[in-house]
Structures are given as structure tokens and as C-alpha cells.
Design a protein around this nucleic acid. Structure first.
Length: 298
DNA sequence: GTCCAGGTCGCGC
DNA sequence: GCGCGACATGGA
């Protein structure tokens, strides 16, 4: 039997829920899903006590989000609190974007940015954001979707009686599965070694995710730490910094190169310095400026 | 079959 | 520090 619990989260305006959910491609990766008709963002989630729940978030009023939780056992108070935390992290409810809007106002650029936009969806944990990011390297988007899909299918725990509802696996599930299993069953290709090593370092404590959430550290320090992770180069480290809420470093990849070439550089692919110069006026907001400079796709 | 994808590693200079 | 080939996988 499935229990349904409805929670609410109060939102500080301005907040644009559909943009937050879909402006970045993560909502297309399992175990996220987006119900366009209902304008609802859903995700299967394994709570820290092991219970698997399915969350669906939708806007109720301008300042209120409804969270419908399906679970196989009634929710305990600590589980409810964890769900609120998960939702706040995914939707970046604790981040402040007024500086971004102000800069937009000052610079007067035309951006594909709706009122209350700017938030880019992220996962409940940095580990998941890192795995997603590694799955975007040296592969096209359909490959990213496929790899994440297979990882979740192979390693994710399912909701009781709902084999299709699988949560994203934690680091220990990757370690227990082993590098060979990952290589054979998930289609991660050569990335399976990187993913396995990252999971192993987190489980062993050699690497701590908490250190990356330290707001007092400069972006450059975090960048250097991220670059020490095998499989995380300049693009991935910069993308992970964005996921951490640090927008002061562009993630230079083939998309950025072709977009800036077309729009700003007369069709010629620019050097990293040329590309950074374009968005330099945005300072700490340059990643978002680039992101919303591009037409929405997908 | 060949090329390449929202790159990165490890090598040799 | 910089250039270069290798790397798994599947779509064009």
C-alpha cells in the first residue's frame, strides 16, 4: 500500500518554478521526471534511513510549493525534514539571485530569462551532481541520458512493488557493485573507472563532500580540489562549481565554443580568453549569463 | 566504415 | 606548461 503525504514549502519570490525545473537538462535524467501537463517535477529518492519515496513538486500559489510524497510506510518526522532539505537543495531555495538581476539591469543584455528565473536544478547530493556531470563529458546528450538511465536501472533501489521507481544509488552502491560490474552493465565506458574511484574515495572518507559546500572558501580553491578528482577536468570542475552555486567561472565545452563563435566571433571558434572576455562583465554571474544567453532547447 | 560527441588522462617534450 | 593520441559507447 502506498501512503501519500502532502507537504508545503514556502517560497521567497521572485521564483519561477517551471524555469527552475527545466532550464538545465538535469530534469531529463533519471530519477528525475517532468510532467509537462501538470507542470510537476518528480523524483524517486532514497532517504538516509533507506526508505524509498517518490516526490512530486508543483507550484500551488506564487509563494507556495506543494510536495506530494508517496511512500510505502508512513513518514517519520525526521524523514519529512530530510525531504524539505532535499527539495531546498534541488531547487536552490536558499540561494540569492538579486545580484544577478541587478547586474542584468545594469548591463541591459537581452537574455532568455523569465521573471524569477536563474535557478538551475540540481540533485539532492553533490555526489549525484558529480556523476551526472562526468556522464556529460565526451558524449552527446542522448548518451548522457542513456548512461544515467542504466546506472539507475542497474544500481538504484526500487520502491516496494514499483520496480520502475528507482532511486539514484549512493556511493556505497557503486563500490559494492565493483568496477567490473559498472564497466559491463552501465555503459559508462572508460568513465566507469572514474565513477568507481570517486565513489570509493567518498565511502572511505579520503574525499569529503562537505568540504565543497564550505561557503567561506574561494572558488579557485574548490576548483583545484575538484581537478584532483580523476575524470574531472576543466569543463567538469567548472560545471560542478555552477552546481555548487558558484557562477564565476565559465564551463568551456563544445556548446560554449560553437555558441560564442556563432553569436560573437563571426563564426570563428574563440580562444578561452576570448570566450571569457565576452561574459567577464557579469563577474560572479557569468555562468548564468551564458546559460540564459542561449536559446532554450531540449 | 568513419567521425564525433556539452573531455580528460598520461605521456613526452 | 603545451601538444597529442587513446579512451568506451552509440548515433549520424
Amino acid at each position: 500500500m502506498i501512503h501519500t503525504t502532502t507537504l508545503t514549502e514556502t517560497i521567497q519570490p521572485p521564483f519561477n518554478f517551471p524555469s527552475t525545473a527545466t532550464a538545465h537538462g538535469w530534469y531529463l535524467l533519471r530519477p528525475f521526471s517532468w510532467d509537462a501537463a501538470a507542470q510537476a517535477l518528480c523524483r524517486v529518492q532514497q532517504l538516509t534511513d533507506g526508505q524509498i519515496v517518490r516526490l512530486c513538486m508543483m507550484l500551488e500559489e506564487d509563494t507556495q510549493l506543494r510536495i506530494e510524497v508517496e511512500s510505502s510506510a508512513p513518514l517519520a518526522q525526521n524523514e519529512i525534514e530530510e525531504i524539505h532539505q532535499v527539495v531546498r537543495r534541488m531547487l536552490r531555495l536558499n540561494e540569492e539571485f538579486s545580484g544577478f538581476y541587478q547586474r542584468w539591469d545594469e548591463l541591459g543584455w537581452t537574455l532568455e530569462l523569465q521573471p524569477g528565473g536563474g535557478r538551475l536544478l540540481r540533485c539532492p547530493t553533490l555526489f549525484e551532481d558529480m556523476i551526472y556531470t562526468i556522464c556529460t563529458t565526451n558524449i552527446n546528450w542522448s548518451g548522457t541520458v542513456r548512461m544515467v538511465d542504466r546506472v539507475v536501472a542497474a544500481l538504484g533501489k526500487s520502491f516496494a512493488g514499483q520496480p520502475e521507481w528507482r532511486a539514484f544509488p549512493g556511493p556505497s552502491a557503486f563500490v559494492e557493485a565493483g568496477a567490473d560490474f559498472l564497466k559491463q552493465e552501465t555503459g559508462l565506458g572508460y568513465r566507469s573507472d572514474y565513477v568507481f574511484e570517486l565513489a570509493q574515495q567518498l565511502v572511505s572518507g579520503d574525499l569529503s563532500v562537505v568540504a565543497f559546500e564550505d561557503q567561506s572558501l574561494p572558488t579557485e580553491d574548490l576548483y583545484k580540489r575538484l581537478r584532483k578528482i580523476k575524470g574531472v577536468g576543466d569543463y567538469a570542475a567548472s560545471t560542478i562549481l555552477m552546481l555548487l552555486g558558484r557562477y564565476d567561472r565559465l564551463a568551456i565545452d563544445s556548446e560554449l565554443r560553437s555558441f560564442t563563435a556563432k553569436k560573437y566571433l563571426g563564426g570563428e571558434v574563440g580562444t578561452p580568453a576570448q570566450m571569457r572576455e565576452i561574459y567577464a562583465p557579469w563577474g560572479e554571474w557569468q555562468y548564468l549569463a551564458y546559460w540564459f544567453d542561449r536559446p532554450a532547447d531540449r
